[in-house]
Design a protein around this nucleic acid. Structure first.
Lengths: 220, 220
DNA sequence: TTCGCGCTAGTGAGTGCTTACTCACTAGCA
DNA sequence: TGCTAGTGAGTAAGCACTCACTAGCGCGAA
């Protein structure tokens, strides 16, 4: 409860922009009680960050569904859908997680290092394996790039694109036709090295699922 | 002088993390004098942001060298080199500009909107034109994506990759072989839709220039 | 049932420090 | 003399954090 309120505050205003008074007010308790639960503002922030790092649903969701056999397309589309759904979805609290991650990167280099190491450890091998499999199947060409770099390029693109979609940061329209998800997927998959044919066949034949998810996001 | 010092402070600590006292100290003047020059801290910040938005060297540099005839490869490699050189280069003040842009995006949505609109207006048409030319020349296939979206995907990737290269935010090694620049360029160009052959011919034949620039950055 | 007891959850009213910002004042120059 | 550049010493508000204190609950003893 307190953690949730604090998370919202920190996400919206950053560490220095958040006051303990405002956190207490958001959690509907007194400031004194806040300091009974957490020894300091910094400790509260640290707990939120480690919590955030621990329970990133993007990670867990991706890892839960048959991680080691996921295809490259599934993996990338999973990432894209997840982040865009968060940003565009109606759950503001969830959406603020993106901002929290972004602000904390800039507030606290140590946290960023931790989070990135975790992401790389958990998803990196899966990505590399799926890329290997795609190359072996002739779906992708082995370009001379470090596979992990390709992963990070993709991650950066998805993350930042999602960030600019937040209602609190509405700086891009991305053109009118709202198939941003497909365009982003294709951009990433092409960049990674997947063949046009493979992209079309894998991404095309379940376009319906894509559209369905988007519709859900819009209708809620 | 004052603006430079203030810019450095805001970049490093964000708006709320920066005190007028620290700005005054960095500019080697008294706090009182600071308030003779600028009516308030917020006004100082606003002036810095508009200044920053006005004089973005990434923009001006790109626009200065024969803008309307730049090829897609030149444009993308210009962006990549520019941002990576800033981030990896020895000029910390310059490097902090990246952080300033990133923090201000999160501090102030209005600034972000302004900056993004400006970037889109200035570089967007050039990008679209060069993409059109590449398609016409058979170097790129017209994929069903909004050209401006492709531009923004590329911009996001470059920007965030450069951010994670800052010494103050050293969370990624990007593998050992330090040809990140080439890998990033290829990723983006493939993503945008350029053919492998075109990439190889355009990017390959002046690899020397690339290596030269990187060497300069390292040697300084 | 009633009492006292310890314990947790909770608070209002502070404390000392920092913040953005002001003001009365001086130095030096045309 | 007037004017600009500059300052030390404030001020009121806001900050993280503390402290003395209360309310209420479970529980064993009388």
């Amino acid at each position: 409860m307190i953690l949730g309120a604090a998370k919202r505050c920190f996400a919206r205003h950053g560490y220095n922009g958040t006051t303990t008074k405002s956190v207490a007010a958001a959690a509907a308790i007194s400031e004194a009680l806040l300091f009974k639960h957490f020894p300091s503002k910094a400790a509260l922030y640290a707990e939120i960050l480690s919590d955030e790092c621990e329970a990133d649903p993007a990670l867990t969701e991706l890892l839960e569904r048959e991680p080691s056999t996921a295809t490259l397309v599934e993996l990338i589309r999973g990432m894209v859908q997840h982040f865009l759904l968060i940003a565009d979805g109606p759950d503001q609290e969830e959406a603020q997680r993106l901002r929290l991650m972004a602000t904390s990167h800039l507030d606290d280099g140590e946290f960023a290092r931790l989070l990135y190491a975790k992401i790389e450890t958990l998803i990196g091998p899966i990505f590399v394996a799926s890329l290997d499999r795609a190359v072996a199947a002739g779906d992708a060409r082995a370009c001379g790039s470090e596979p992990l770099n390709l992963f990070w390029f993709a991650h950066h693109t998805v993350m930042t694109t999602a960030l600019t979609r937040l209602p609190s940061l509405p700086c891009l329209a991305y053109g009118r036709p709202n198939d941003l998800e497909r365009q982003l997927c294709e951009f990433l998959l092409r960049g990674i090295g997947l063949n046009d044919a493979a992209i079309a066949s894998h991404l095309g034949h379940d376009q319906a699922a894509c559209a369905g998810k988007a519709a859900i996001a819009e209708s809620v």
